[in-house]
Amino acid sequence: MGPAHGHPEVTTLMTTTNDIAAEDTPVVELKATGKSYGNIRALHGVDLAVRPGQVTCVLGDNGAGKSTLIKIVSGLHQHTEGEFLVDGTPVRFSTPREALDKGIATVYQDLATVPLMPVWRNFFLGSELTKGPWPVRRLDIEKMKKTADEELRNMGIVLDDLEQPIGTLSGGQRQCVAIARAVHFGARVLILDEPTAALGVKQSGVVLKYIAAARDRGLGVIFITHNPHHAYMVGDHFSVLRLGTMELSAERSQVSLEELTNHMAGGTELAALKHELAQVRGVDVEELPDAAAVSS
């Protein structure tokens, strides 16, 4: 009797171990990645791992390097140092289409929608379904409407009228349509560029809900934001960029909201500023709040 028959538990254990290893392999990984524009170093030594079913939050102030990081992962720009891996294999994208072919979709702040076009048309913008023989193929409008409605409902988005111009939807709803569209077209990694930046509290809540829904469907999400409160609501891993380098990289269990906010607000810089102000006559630094209080 062979070992497989004598010890079925061995086979089971090996299968389980392989499954765990497969799940643990990041879809997207940056290793000591950097980007220079001439002699200007925009990004340096960045490590980032994006796994299926996780939200990786990248936080940073203006000029921290968030946009450069997005451009590398989405295929707009190529890195000049370190490694960029997809499914464990080094890649160097020349165009966003190459990134999309690997399942990496980006939803930018401007959403790349046509405001006066109906919701269903925007859903399929650039990837329209057609029917009939060539050269008289025509748009398959009914199928596109039906598919758009089903995909939006699968994400929990119910719109009364898919014929309404997408410009009449709220900012939060437009973000959600863009997320559902990326999921439908096979995204495995979803990059969201400041999706809540221009939204009020209620609409931000709507978007955060659909970020969590995308994670629950097994997508790896890169949530770019400068709002630590929004990040902490849905994040599984937090990376804070400062002046092009990674200042913090921590799992949710390793960092509190207060600590995250302190890093984001530049607690060390505020402490140094307080020290500098102590040298100035007429400024009572004892009356100033400490760094943690300023940042929260």
Rank of each mutant, 00 (worst) to 15 (best):
A180N: 08
I179N: 01
F124C: 03
I40D: 10
V294W: 15
G205Y: 10
F123D: 03
S94V: 13
T56C: 13
V183R: 00
R181F: 12
T95N: 07
E258Q: 13
S36W: 01
I70L: 10
V177I: 15
A250Q: 11
M14S: 12
A291K: 02
N262L: 07
T89C: 06
D161W: 06
L43I: 14
M144A: 03
R242V: 11
A265S: 07
A212W: 04
E128F: 08
E259H: 13
A250F: 05
S74F: 10
A32Q: 15
D61M: 05
Y37G: 03
G205T: 06
F123I: 13
P133C: 03
W134T: 05
A292Q: 14
T15G: 09
D140W: 12
R41I: 10
A187S: 09
P135W: 15
Q203P: 05
V221E: 00
T106R: 08
P26H: 11
G75E: 04
L199Q: 01
A99E: 03
P8I: 12
M246S: 13
V240K: 07
I191C: 09
F238C: 01
L139W: 09
V183A: 14
H77L: 07
S296F: 08
R97Y: 10
S296W: 08
K71W: 06
G65H: 00
P3L: 14
Q164L: 12
N39D: 13
G235N: 12
G103P: 04
E9Q: 11
V136M: 14
T106S: 05
S127T: 12
R137L: 03
F93Q: 00
R138K: 15
